[in-house]
Amino acid sequence: MRNTATLIQLRAFVAAAESGSFGRAAVTLGLSPSSVSESVQALEQMHGQTLFKRSPRGITLTPAGERALPHARLTVKHSEDFALAVDERLALEGVLIVATFRSLGIHLLPPVLALLRRHHPRLQVQVLDGTVGEGGEQLVHDGRADVAFLELTNQTPLLTLPVVQDDYVVVRPRAHQAGPVTAAALQTQPLLLFPAGHACNATVHRHLRTFLLPGTAVQEIAEDEVMLSMVEHGLGLAVMPRLAVLPLRESLMVHPLPVPLPRVLGVAIKSGRAGLPHLRAFTEALQAFQATPSFARLQALLQPA
């Protein structure tokens, strides 16, 4: 019978892959660097595959290591989840990892976390940038985040809970002549957009191409505050989610797109983990926030004028 990898070996492999160093992995795990290295070598010998390329600058995954890493993460996570399901105290005094992007992190996450802390003060929260790499959905899927605030789609295999509806708007200087923004009006200045590389930004890029006139100049800007400042200085018109514009600067105004593009914002959790105590506590805090006057005011701000 073929040997089976132990949890210690898999934890060593995951920690080394995420840190890029046996030494840093050892600090994370509370082990010696030699113990981490020996655990990884045991996995490599067991399967006859090299998992890391080693060099004086550190370690990088081989193709075999890249294929194995998501499965190792999930195995380790399932073991941790077993302990959390058995011991509610352990779950509610541990760490909750939340992925989000900036506008949701400003307007939705803090009030939910405040309610969560009120009921579970020992639960620590770690916040990750949900726009990096493959985004919050992938972070939840492979176990690097417990929950993600994101734009919901019909394609996700995750359990999703809708929170609020938002729409994309055109942002322009208040000094401009009022009136509806037409496709022709979007040609008067460069159109400022978030980079299309992230999934939720790709959606608005595809939508705009359905009605933008030929020759419309598009400039990608990564930071929303930079984009708004450029609009203030007459350097372009921005297309952004309404939530990302709040609170609206006095010098700016927003208008609906010529063809509306709404989006539903919410949270995503792996369905098999939703019953874990710390995730159940998070969703209860979210639902409690949705029943507050503060949430009602936020919803009102997101309604088209």
Rank of each mutant, 00 (worst) to 15 (best):
R209L: 14
L186S: 10
F194T: 01
A183T: 04
I221T: 10
E225F: 00
Q219N: 07
L237H: 15
V218H: 02
L235M: 15
N201E: 10
A185K: 11
T182D: 07
A185C: 09
I221V: 15
V226H: 15
L192P: 00
H207T: 11
L192D: 02
A222M: 03
P214F: 00
V204I: 15
L208F: 03
L186Y: 09
E223K: 15
H233T: 12
A185P: 02
G234W: 04
R209N: 03
H233D: 09
H207S: 13
L191K: 13
M230D: 07
P195W: 05
L237W: 09
C200Y: 04
M227E: 00
T216I: 07
F211V: 10
E220D: 13
L228Q: 10
L186N: 07
A222C: 03
L208P: 06
H198G: 00
H207D: 13
D224A: 05
H198C: 02
L193S: 07
F211T: 11
G236K: 01
L186R: 09
L208W: 01
A238C: 07
A222P: 12
R206Y: 03
L228N: 11
Q189E: 08
R206W: 02
V231C: 03
R209K: 11
Q187I: 00
Q219M: 11
H207N: 10
H198F: 09
A199L: 05
L193F: 05
V204N: 02
P195T: 09
A196S: 11
G236N: 03
A184S: 04
A217H: 14
L208Q: 12
Q219S: 10
A184E: 15
P190C: 08
G234Y: 01
H207A: 12
L191C: 05
T203W: 03
L192S: 09
E220M: 10
L228S: 12
V231N: 01
G236T: 10
L186K: 07
P190G: 11
I221P: 05
S229L: 08
G215H: 06
G234K: 04
N201Y: 09
L212V: 12
L186T: 08
A199F: 08
A184H: 12
M230A: 11
T210L: 14
A238G: 05
T182M: 07
E232M: 12
P214R: 02
I221R: 15
M230K: 14
A183D: 14
E220P: 01
L208K: 00
A196G: 09
S229P: 03
H198S: 12
V231T: 06
T188W: 04
L237E: 02
A196I: 04
T216G: 11
G215F: 14
V226A: 08
Q187G: 13
E220R: 07
Q187P: 02
A196N: 06
E225L: 12
R206S: 06
E232H: 04
N201Q: 13
T203C: 00
H198W: 03
V218I: 15
H233C: 07
V226S: 11
L193G: 07
L228A: 04
G215N: 06
Q189C: 08
E225R: 09
G234C: 02
F194K: 08
C200N: 06
M230L: 12
A183H: 06
T210S: 15
L212H: 02
M227S: 06
V218Q: 09
F211E: 03
E220N: 06
D224L: 00
H233A: 07
L213Y: 09
Q189M: 14
H233Y: 03
H198R: 15
G234H: 01
P195S: 00
L213F: 05
L235C: 11
